[in-house]
């Protein structure tokens, strides 16, 4: 057991746990942040995407022991920001949501993209979402949602 201190959605957290547990499990089970989903547990589907120290990561691939001092943002944190609200609205207006299981992860990937590139092309948006699998939408409306968020959110990123 190791004591680990890190920040989640701007709040400092200290937990004592097995450092080899997945960040995904700590977020869901210990902190109740169930917006982070488990879809494949091997870094393929992106449903568990969170932002760690400003970078998009698959939380199923991250042992909590590597998170000492890290800043983690989950969908629960992002949705409380103007950026998050802009993405959520843009997705809703674009028809980007169907079963919704991939969508919080898609929102995190969108945030990570716009943080680096506030006016992406369609090709750049598709590349940015390529680690987030969706089985319902065929992606077009999600891509539209990303571009709409970029358009509406000028100045936010």
């Amino acid at each position: 057991m190791t004591k680990i201190t890190f920040s989640v959605n701007g709040e400092s957290r200290t937990i004592e746990t097995d450092p080899l547990r997945r960040l995904l499990d700590v977020l869901r089970e210990d902190l109740g942040l169930t917006g982070v989903k488990e879809g494949c547990a091997e870094g393929e589907c992106g449903a568990c995407s969170v932002i760690k120290d400003g970078l998009l990561v698959n939380s199923c691939m991250v042992p909590i022991g590597t998170c000492e001092g890290a800043r983690i943002v989950t969908p629960e944190g992002l949705r409380e920001t103007d950026r998050g609200r802009t993405i959520i609205d843009a997705y809703a207006d674009s028809g980007a949501v169907q079963c919704g299981f991939c969508t919080p992860g898609m929102m995190m990937a969108t945030e990570a993209l716009l943080e680096k590139n506030s006016q992406p092309s369609e090709a750049e948006a598709r590349e940015a979402l390529s680690g987030n699998l969706c089985r319902c939408t065929g992606y077009d409306m999600i891509v539209e949602g990303v571009l709409k968020a970029a358009e509406r959110g000028k100045g936010l990123w």
């Binding site: 995407s49 698959n58 991250v62 990937a109 990570a112 390529s130």
Partner: peptide
């Protein structure tokens, strides 16, 4: 290789 999230790790 893989996708943006994984390449960050």
């Amino acid at each position: 290789i893989a996708a943006p999230g994984l390449r960050n790790t």
